[in-house]
């Protein structure tokens, strides 16, 4: 009886274990199928590089949205990568225990804040700050709803991801290596620069890739502060319209215009494919690094 129960449980769990891979496949298949109708009418490259977005006229060019997504993500990473890495180095190599014990829960809490709350905060604080202070400083006119605001809000949202992974990476660098470097007369920073960062480089790249894929698909918070104008942004102070925002803003009307729903599902498919590519890339980097370390 007990053996039978064990056998049944084993079979059931074995089947369940296939679930995550199945979800990935179903997601790909479902989105591919739903974006079929628009791919049957327009070529993939004309969709990717088209600049006109007029669903009522059957014109679907994704370039402004791709550019918006890239712009906001790039801006976020320019801010988030140095800040997160410096924080991670400080917490792992310099900070006294007390600081570490206080900071780590703060980072966890930051990771838990819902994205819509980031959006509300962005509207209340970042948008006016960028519109009234930063843009005039650079001699630009901006409503504040722009790429820079989106980038700032996104950067704060990906801090926890990058810091968390980097801390793990730095923690895995052996203490002996550090001691050797210090014993040879290197300063602490030199030890960090030549030993910890060099050793941890593959892990740092993986952390950044994770951060990018997180930033790439963030929807609500960005949508609230980025302006949503379907034009390729020319400067950080221009409004942009990232892909996720496009999907979220138009779900209501997509069923009433021909091919519109298919176009939005294609947008979701593009997001999924990019995240998949990043995931595979990060995995390859980490596996290579492990082989090298062995």
């Amino acid at each position: 009886m007990r053996q039978l129960k064990d056998l049944i449980a084993r079979r059931a769990m074995f089947l369940m274990t296939g679930l995550p891979a199945l979800i990935v496949l179903l997601m790909l298949a479902g989105l591919l199928r739903k974006s079929g109708p628009i791919l049957a009418v327009h070529s993939f490259s004309s969709l990717l590089f088209g600049t006109g977005w007029h669903p009522l006229r059957g014109e679907f060019g994704f370039l402004p949205f791709l550019a918006g997504t890239l712009g906001v993500t790039l801006m976020a990473m320019v801010i988030a990568v140095p800040v997160s890495l410096l924080t991670a180095v400080y917490l792992s190599e310099y900070a006294p225990k007390l600081v570490r014990d206080v900071t780590k829960p703060v980072i966890d809490l930051l990771a838990g804040i819902p994205s819509v709350v980031f959006g509300v905060w962005g509207v209340l604080m970042v948008v006016p700050f960028v519109g009234n202070v930063v843009a005039p400083l650079f001699g630009a006119a901006s409503s504040g709803y722009c790429v820079l605001s989106g980038g700032i809000v996104l950067a704060i949202m990906v801090f926890p991801t990058i810091i968390h992974v980097s801390l793990e990476v730095f923690g895995a660098v052996s203490q002996d290596l550090r001691d050797t470097s210090l014993a040879l007369g290197a300063t602490r920073w030199e030890t960090v620069k030549h030993v910890v960062l060099r050793r941890g480089l593959p892990g740092i790249i993986a952390a950044v890739v994770l951060g990018v894929s997180r930033a790439f698909g963030e929807t609500i918070a960005v949508l609230m502060v980025v302006g949503n104008v379907a034009k390729v942004p020319a400067s950080p102070f221009d409004a942009a319209y990232p892909l996720p925002a496009l999907i979220a803003n138009n779900y209501g009307e997509m069923m009433s215009v021909p091919l519109y729903d298919s176009a939005l599902m294609l947008a979701a498919l593009i997001l999924l494919l990019v995240v998949l590519a990043f995931g595979v890339g990060a995995r390859i980097i980490l596996v290579k690094a492990e082989r090298k370390a062995e």
């Binding site: 479902g30 929807t219 999907i247 979701a268 990043f278």
Partner: peptide
């Protein structure tokens, strides 16, 4: 884990 929530929404 990395799939954006809007893609979950579409799926």
């Amino acid at each position: 884990w990395g799939v954006p929530s809007i893609v979950y929404g579409a799926f």
